[in-house]
Design a protein around this nucleic acid. Structure first.
Lengths: 214, 214
DNA sequence: AGCGAAGTTGACGGGCCGTCACGGGGTGAC
DNA sequence: GTCACCCCGTGACGGCCCGTCAACTTCGCT
């Protein structure tokens, strides 16, 4: 803004972190244009059915340009996924710090996840990943919850708060429950986030307890 | 075999159910050739990466012939899936009848499912469904277990053996656990079917118990 | 102003898709 | 045994998507 009559040199860019050269600006814009188009296209056609060409048509770029930014449809998906995870993870961390106990922690994490699911679902960002036989993609939030829960569980076990069980199995079980129940929840109208979160929490905690008994 | 000098008329076919006309014979053979090729190709390339052309090349048929039997790759997958389910379901039923209680029933079902998984996995029939972002197809056995467990749970609730809970959520949770833990199990060497089955059983039963408490 | 690098463009060869007009061979009637 | 019918296998075809690349445009710097 204060650039005025400056020649937009490198010194200015380093000064604030913004006001990049035309080159960098255009690069960022193109990348974002591709991601935006991809979001729209995935939402409309579903990930499976969408083609790179569909995404390109959603921008005003040439086909070759796409490949300057991404190698494939998969890579675009991953970029979108990382984006989702980056937005979601802080929320999850916050819940973890506010939690009063292990039980509370699980419920908060799951509740946050389901809320996120419903939001993204409403926004159309989560297309029907289920075309063909029946296919599901691991959403970024899922991965975030997975790692978060795994860490939380490992913590709890280390502190003796939770029984000692195979953490891989446990994390897998928890994520499986959240995933499937989340799916069922989304199909209901209206989706009962709190109810589903309570169900999952109880189920997982009950499972942990029973498994820990030997 | 006893056909001898017969003119292979329709009456003979109806008599035993076999000894079909050349036409029907060839049709069955072609269908089977496609399914066999598809199994191989899916195993080798993965479901995602496999193309209809790959399947066709795995047979000595022309491309047009494929479409006389199946509309798409998806339809071939479904045919293979139905086949798997048809082989697996009787096993599951048998376990159900042998079970002495609800707990035993769950463990038997899960154990049978995991055994099936390992067998099919070894046979290469279950390719890496996870290419690209991370994609998973609902296998036919999964669907069979899903329905079986759902029915079993509904039964148990009706008889008062299991606490009254939302059966959709419950079935979803159970299948989610089995699915994810099954995945983890398959990645270990050697896969511990009994251990995983015990884990899942305990987890699910614990979950059911806790959820039922209110 | 002018040069070199960075980035964009769109045409191109290769491959897959599903279709369809053709022809060969099984089938049943006589 | 013969023959007409029609089922079904065949493979070439137009349409589309893929990833590449030589030519060109734009930017950044001197």
């Amino acid at each position: 803004m204060a650039a005025g009559h400056m020649t937009a040199g490198t010194a200015n860019a380093a000064e604030t972190g913004e006001a990049l050269g035309r080159r960098e600006q255009s690069k960022a814009a193109n990348r974002q244009a591709i991601l935006d188009a991809a979001r729209r296209v995935f939402a409309q056609l579903g990930y499976e059915a969408a083609s790179v060409r569909d995404i390109i048509r959603g921008t005003d770029l040439a086909s070759g340009t796409f490949y300057n930014y991404f190698k494939s449809k998969e890579e675009v998906f991953e970029a979108l996924a990382d984006d989702g995870a980056r937005r979601f993870r802080p929320v999850l961390r916050a819940q973890r710090e506010q939690a009063t106990c292990f039980e509370d922690y699980i419920e908060r994490a799951v509740h946050a996840y389901f809320t996120f699911l419903v939001t993204e679902h409403r926004a159309g960002a989560h297309p029907t990943y289920d075309r063909g036989p029946h296919v599901r993609a691991n959403t970024p939030e899922m991965i975030a919850v997975f790692e978060e829960v795994r860490d939380g569980v490992a913590d709890a076990i280390a502190r003796g708060t939770a029984p000692m069980v195979d953490p891989d199995f446990l994390a897998a079980a928890a994520i499986g429950v959240a995933q499937e129940v989340g799916d069922v929840m989304l199909k209901r109208n209206p989706p009962d986030v709190s109810g589903a979160a309570r169900f999952v929490t109880a189920f997982v905690l009950g499972g942990v307890g029973k498994v820990g008994e030997r």
